Simulated assay, not measured.
Amino acid sequence: MTIEIFDSANDLALAVSRQLAARVQSVAAAGRTPRLVLTGGTIATRIYGRLSGENADWRVAEYWWGDERFVPEGHEDRNDRQAREGFLDRLGVPDEHVHAMPAHGCDLSMADAADAYAKTLPEDPFDVVLLGVGPDAHIASLFPGHPQVHETERLAVEVFDSPKPPPERISLTYPALNHTRATWFVVSGADKAEAVAKAMTGTPIDEAPAAGARGLEETVWFLDTAAASRLPR
């Protein structure tokens, strides 16, 4: 596990955008299709806004999401809309490379929608899974005390009672999130400091789901000084 701490959220976002570009370039140069799992949230918006066609060809990568709000397609709450507006559309990523989760109104139950999404996941590991962390130490839509944190068979699950709105969501599970070469946590703000400390000091996943996520080859915590303020010295 590696920890990188930055003076500000802007510095963090710039560093992650550069490292993500370098990773996409290196994977593509090795003759593979870069496969990325995206996250949502404020810091993700800052990262996406700093991605540029000058430092990587984002069109060659494929994209999935760690979780999604089960609201209609194009709704402002959807993580895929945030990413499309942030960089996917701007940088010309082909629609066939964008694997959005099913939306409300797709004529599938949430359970069937989750299972359908699981079938889109690649057999080979992802190259990078980006994860935000909530103040309660949740990741994707795996929340403390919820049964989804103990799922070991299904790769994607339905969530009906998210403690933060909207309540209905679809989320990847640990078997999917951890099937990745690299896990990158991106966390900003003092309100996340306690959650970061819990996740990094062995708190059980029932209390801190972020503690259960890790990459096969690397796990990196990208933090600003506020988010890192409760870490042991």
Rank of each mutant, 00 (worst) to 15 (best):
3 I>R: 14
7 D>F: 03
9 A>H: 13
12 L>S: 07
18 R>D: 11
21 A>C: 07
22 A>L: 11
23 R>Y: 00
31 G>W: 05
33 T>A: 11
39 T>F: 04
40 G>H: 09
41 G>H: 05
42 T>Y: 05
44 A>R: 12
46 R>H: 08
49 G>T: 10
49 G>N: 12
53 G>A: 12
59 R>H: 01
60 V>R: 06
62 E>C: 05
69 R>P: 00
73 E>R: 15
74 G>I: 08
80 D>L: 02
86 G>A: 11
86 G>M: 13
87 F>I: 11
94 P>H: 02
98 V>G: 05
98 V>E: 09
99 H>N: 15
102 P>C: 02
105 G>Q: 10
113 A>E: 07
114 A>C: 14
114 A>D: 13
115 D>G: 11
121 L>R: 06
122 P>S: 02
122 P>R: 00
123 E>Q: 12
124 D>V: 13
125 P>F: 02
126 F>K: 13
135 P>G: 15
137 A>I: 08
141 S>F: 11
143 F>P: 01
150 H>G: 03
155 L>R: 14
164 K>G: 09
182 A>F: 00
185 F>M: 10
189 G>D: 07
190 A>Y: 01
194 E>K: 15
197 A>W: 01
207 E>N: 01
212 G>N: 07
213 A>S: 14
214 R>E: 08
215 G>L: 13
216 L>Q: 15
221 W>H: 04
227 A>W: 06
